[in-house]
Design a protein around this nucleic acid. Structure first.
Length: 441
DNA sequence: AAGAAGTGCAACCGCGTATAT
DNA sequence: CATATACGCGGTTGCACTTCT
């Protein structure tokens, strides 16, 4: 340590000490006086912008060191002392599932830091190895298998893939029962018809922590909103014969594919801050847009969140990709969009009573990122492969233009949609009325 | 009692990535 | 688009303290 600080990072300790004429930054243990200054800084200016501590408070520490000191020792609600047996057990379980994801583990242990957990584990593992004991008690196995047997697209980097391998989903939980599917091999489905309360922890008692995010401009800017039509409209788009029963609305990053049918069985779901690939594609939430509290249709749920928080969008995407490949080989739609166009995608299907499907992504989405691989073609299709109809997607003025700098949102051309439904009036351009939709097939 | 070895923890480093300019 | 800056994570190191011989 202290071997010269030759790091390339701008936050490396030599960032200014190396410059002639500048005061060398202090290293090593923190003093109480320094702690006091740092606490004062946070009280005055808040967390973040750690390099400003030096500028504003005259601190002779680099920003990185300040952040570390605050995070690991000074911030409120830190729990000091030895780990309790419960915490130790939790760490074991988490490690068996997450591997060396200390920050994620720390998110599950209030008051504990990643550094603490890491140190605990490293000392423990040393002891275990020395003693020839198994690392995981009770037959726990380290994480090893991806949640889906379906191979990931090769263009995805390992880091990208890793985002998806949340152990909670490593076991094949049938999260989604699609009546269309005849052979859903491998891919972890998304939606399910079971209540969320039993869904989230089916395979593991451990809730997956909301993955930590690097900065992004506006956490609320990313959203996918899905709501189902109310029961009164339900039959018009989902006949008793099940024309579009439980069809998912799904996404695939590599093709940005949406499969749009009737509402998924869950009337809504929520996904808070799923960790997304390094493409900056960060969806903060799938929020419920509307609910039907008096919905008599049990398939519609009770307005609760039917999708487990924190499930990775990547899982959804991979799921959608697999599902689409298996189920929609021939009847996919149609329009293909450029990367720039699909950088922002938004579509609304609004019912007369205001219920709507809304899909929106943030201005930060970058589908051209290498992690995403392929050019982001966009397809919207009906999920019923036997139906023989397809929806075209075209750019229309969408409501989400306010999000930012780019207004070339994608939406559904309602002419095209209406054309799918013979006899459907096309007067309501820009708004697809569920009431105008006859059964598709 | 003293030195060696082991342990635990704080802090640092390197790197990847996000954001600002 | 390139570059600079900032943030966060995981790995590593140094050192004080404890235990062992």
């Amino acid at each position: 340590m202290n071997s010269g600080a030759s790091g390339s990072s701008s936050e490396s300790l030599n960032e200014s000490a190396g410059s002639a004429g500048e005061v060398a930054l202090k290293k090593g243990p923190w003093t109480a006086a320094e702690d006091k200054v740092l606490v004062e800084y946070v009280e005055r200016y808040g967390e973040g912008n750690w390099n400003a501590v030096r500028k504003k408070m005259g601190m002779l520490r680099c920003g990185k060191s300040c952040r570390l000191r605050w995070t690991n020792h000074l911030r409120p609600n830190l729990k000091k002392g030895s780990f309790t047996p419960e915490e130790e057990q939790l760490i074991l379980e988490l490690h068996s599932q997450l591997g060396n994801k200390w920050a994620r583990m720390a998110a599950q242990l209030p008051g504990r830091t990643d550094n603490e957990i890491k140190n605990f584990w490293n000392t423990r593992i040393k002891r275990k190895l020395r003693d020839g004991l198994p690392l995981y008690p009770h037959g726990q196995k380290p994480r090893q298998t991806p949640p889906m047997q379906t191979p990931l697209p090769q263009q995805h980097s390992q880091a990208f893939k890793n985002q998806f391998f949340l152990p909670q989903y490593q076991t094949a939980i049938p999260l989604f029962h699609n009546p269309f599917q005849t052979g859903f091999h491998g891919a972890t489905p998304i939606f399910d018809q079971i209540p969320c309360t039993t869904l989230q922890h089916q395979s593991s008692p451990l809730p997956i922590p909301p993955p930590r995010h690097k900065r992004y401009r506006d956490p609320t800017a990313f959203s996918i909103s899905i709501a189902s039509a109310p029961a009164s409209e339900y039959p018009t788009m989902m006949s008793p014969h099940g024309i579009l029963p439980n069809a998912p609305l799904s996404f695939n990053l590599s093709s940005l594919q949406m499969e749009m049918g009737a509402a998924p069985s869950p009337s809504s779901f929520s996904m808070a801050n799923p960790e997304l690939p390094s493409s900056q594609l960060q969806f903060s939430r799938i929020m419920k847009m509307a609910e039907s509290s008096s919905n008599p249709d049990p398939r519609m749920g009770h307005g609760g969140l039917l999708y487990p928080d924190r499930m990775l969008l990547g899982d959804m995407m991979e799921e959608a990709h697999s599902w689409a490949n298996m189920n929609l080989p021939q009847n996919k739609c149609s329009n293909t969009y450029s990367k720039s166009e699909t950088n922002r995608l938004a579509s609304d299907l609004v019912s007369p009573s205001g219920m709507k499907y809304e899909v929106s992504t943030s201005p930060g989405i970058d589908s051209s990122h290498e992690d995403l691989g392929k050019p982001a073609d966009c397809h919207v299709s009906t999920p019923d492969a036997n139906c023989g109809r397809s929806l075209n997607v075209s750019t229309v003025g969408c409501a989400s233009g306010a999000q930012g700098d780019n207004n070339d949102n994608l939406g559904l051309d309602m002419h095209d949609i209406a054309a799918l439904f013979p006899g459907t009036p096309t007067a309501e351009l820009g708004v697809l009325s569920w009431e105008n939709l006859p059964e598709i097939c």
